[in-house]
Simulated assay, not measured.
Amino acid sequence: MTHPTRRRFIGIVAASSALALAPSLLRRAHAAIAPTRWQGVALGADAELRLYHPDRRAAEQLIDRALRELRRLEGVFSLYREDSALSVLNRQGFLAAPPSDLVRLLSESRHYAQVTDGLFDPSVQPLWRMYADHFAQPGASPDGPAPADVARALAHVSYRNIDVDPQRIRLRPDMALTLNGIAQGYITDRVTDLLRSAGLERALVDLGEIRGLDASARAEGWRVGLADPLSPDRILAQVPVSNQALATSGGYGTPLDAAGRHSHLFDPHSGRASPRYRSVSVMASTATAADALSTAFSNMPLARIEALVHALGVRAWMVLPDGKLIAQGGGD
């Protein structure tokens, strides 16, 4: 997952600024057990695990298990590793006997593509290649690739052309996938599920996307800061996270050009690389959902976001180009 495609930069942005877990903002009321903490790099981003377990040694063993699971899943979804299942699929155009996690996540990707009318689409990798090639050329037009080049790349973008079943995954010619708009959320969920299955009752998982686990379901949860994309040291809002997940997408951390006019958040309909918002954060019951929806909402009009927020029972925060924060859902 450390290849410089669209979601890798989202992870860096989410962990280091837009969803920063600042010590002053992250607290747990009436905590009876001090957390066992791990801090490091995961999925190419700063990461943290906080496990509330009365036995520190047992907590450390759970952290080791969680990190092994994370590395295993990186071996499925990474675009940086040539031997990952996803890299092999992109190179061959098909994959026999695919890992069950890849089948599952591609099925989830299709669901969120349908829900968002295709504004979440894992097949946008040809757009990344085209923009990267364009801006790598000396004297490249600051307006981006020519319309004809965009049209050629878009001809290979459609989630509907991904054939998935447990025995085989097949792509149409010249297609390529990236799961960087959803895989961080999926891995966050799998690690959280691992901890819950081991009997852990309280944990905070921050792998670029954030998920809280608390069997007591106390409403106050952890406080997470939403940072200002224009000034990441400034907090725009604080939101509680308890048995929920929070993800962010923002193009400001990953410009494709020196002027910062084009980012990795591609519109699968038009091929544009200039999202509508400086950042989008979504809170949902799972990190997979929050991740995919924050990606899709980046190129979605506010009215359509509002309709989906209420239909899906999620919350969303959009930072407009002028820096204004718009919140939707949860009573708004």
Rank of each mutant, 00 (worst) to 15 (best):
W222Q: 10
G221N: 14
L204W: 00
L207I: 05
R202D: 13
G144L: 04
A151K: 13
A198W: 09
A203W: 01
S197C: 10
Y186M: 04
G199I: 00
D149Y: 02
A146E: 15
M175S: 06
P173G: 13
G221Y: 01
M175E: 12
V164A: 08
Y159E: 14
A176Q: 09
D214F: 01
E220F: 02
S216L: 09
A198D: 12
D206G: 05
G185C: 03
Q184V: 02
L200D: 13
A148L: 07
E201K: 12
A198H: 13
R218F: 02
L194T: 12
D143W: 01
V157C: 01
G185M: 02
I182Q: 07
Y159V: 00
L207P: 10
N161Y: 09
D174L: 06
R196L: 07
R202M: 09
L200C: 07
V157N: 06
N180Y: 07
R202Y: 06
Y186N: 03
L179W: 09
V150L: 11
D206H: 12
I187Q: 03
R168H: 15
S197K: 14
A176V: 00
R196P: 03
D163H: 12
S216Y: 12
A198G: 11
L177A: 05
R172Y: 07
A151S: 10
R223N: 14
V205W: 02
Y186L: 00
A219Y: 04
L204C: 03
P147A: 09
G185R: 09
G208T: 06
A153F: 05
A155G: 07
D206M: 02
D174M: 09
D149W: 01
G185K: 08
L213N: 09
N161I: 00
E209K: 10
D189P: 04
I210V: 13
R152Y: 08
L213P: 04
R202W: 06
T192R: 13
D214C: 04
N161E: 15
R160T: 12
L204H: 03
R190T: 05
L171I: 01
V224C: 09
L200E: 15
L195F: 12
L177I: 06
A198E: 14
